[in-house]
Design a protein around this nucleic acid. Structure first.
Lengths: 204, 204
DNA sequence: CGTGTTCTGTACTTCACAGTACACAGATTT
DNA sequence: AAATCTGTGTACTGTGAAGTACAGAACACG
């Protein structure tokens, strides 16, 4: 785990390392980033890296955790609103808007990391399983509330609907990343929309 | 490009190298595979590698091409049948069956490579753009035939439906890879199914 | 202040891995 | 069977990048 900084300066340095590393990794991929690169980008020396992190792997793991936290923190306010079809549409719109930002055409930060690292060891893979579970949880909760309020059919499987939605997001972002055309995400979400609307209680 | 083998033995060796490299990369990811690993797995010496390939990058590129060809060749017979809802369902079923095979829980061979390598250079990224275009082409053609025969609504955008379907496949395989639960793919495809059925001509 | 602690800069070591050199073997042609 | 091309085995070199050593600066607290 390396040393946890106690002073403000130390915390700032650790953050700077983490942010620089996350940026570089996002741009070039995990394998193409060296510690020298991170040092240069963060403006720190070798000793800092090994002061705050055990080794390269520890740094990568820390980047994974920090990336997951960042993404989920950004999603949270919108995800908590998901308890009606309108709420879902607002969430989708936000995701699409976010995916259309120029710098986000690098795909989903979590998804990219996941496909690069999940083959590494089971512990790393588990980190991503957890990340997706945390991401999905508020969606499942919202869908369940929709079911209780009668908006969603009682026989609909909310877990499966949530899984399907996550898959659409990930697939859409992957294609957007490859094709460098952000609207792939919008199209991908159309499928999830269709499936969700199918599960609505039919109007009387 | 390295030397193209002229004898049967040469071709066999080149194939052996390519297959071993593809397997290793599929299992561990591009970065975690060294030339020594490939040599051992293929049972060849260093000189063979540099006889048939210019350098490591050339080998990787060749693996990409060969992987794309393999996947598309496997898909082709089913994709050509896609010109009715029943044909689509048969194709989906085959994809699901394939994704459920134990060794395929490593996600989509093309998708995995794409997210690892598309950030490298534009030429490599373009290879994946082409790969997905080739994959999608017969699907688009089939949907168009369905439109001409009246099975699909005339105002449906077949390209968008195809994109949406590809995204569902990729997202489903990514989640399946991370969660090691093959049925994520089945769920993901349910969204595509819903969108496709929405685009059918309503029964009179 | 001064003393211990946290933090930082630089130069070094080590090693794994890509890439090279070169000799040997097996086939094919005439 | 000589000549020559294609293919193969092994041992080597060079380098880039991870990891280490250690001295020096900034800071906390008496």
């Amino acid at each position: 785990m390396g040393h946890t900084p106690t002073t403000a300066r130390g915390r700032a340095t650790r953050e700077r390392i983490l942010d620089s590393a996350a940026d570089l990794i996002q741009q070039r991929g995990v394998a193409a980033v060296t510690l020298d690169d991170v040092e240069r980008a963060a403006g720190v020396g070798r000793s800092q890296l090994y002061h705050y992190f055990d080794d390269r792997d520890d740094l990568i793991r820390s980047v994974v955790h920090s990336t997951v936290d960042t993404v989920l923190a950004a999603q949270e306010p919108l995800l908590l609103e998901v308890d009606s079809l309108a709420g879902i549409h607002r969430w989708f719109d936000a995701i699409e808007a976010n995916g259309t930002r120029q710098d986000a055409v690098g795909g989903c930060a979590i998804g990219s990391l996941a496909s690069q690292l999940s083959g590494r060891d089971d512990l790393t893979r588990q980190a991503f399983v957890d990340a997706f579970a945390r991401w999905e949880a508020p969606l499942i909760a919202g869908l369940r509330r929709m079911q209780e309020s009668g908006e969603l059919r009682p026989d609909a499987d909310v877990t499966e609907l949530a899984d399907l939605t996550m898959a659409a997001i990930q697939g859409g972002l992957l294609l957007a990343q490859i094709r460098r055309t952000p609207d792939q995400l919008r199209l991908a979400l159309r499928g999830a929309r269709a499936a969700l609307e199918d599960a609505l209680t039919p109007l009387p």
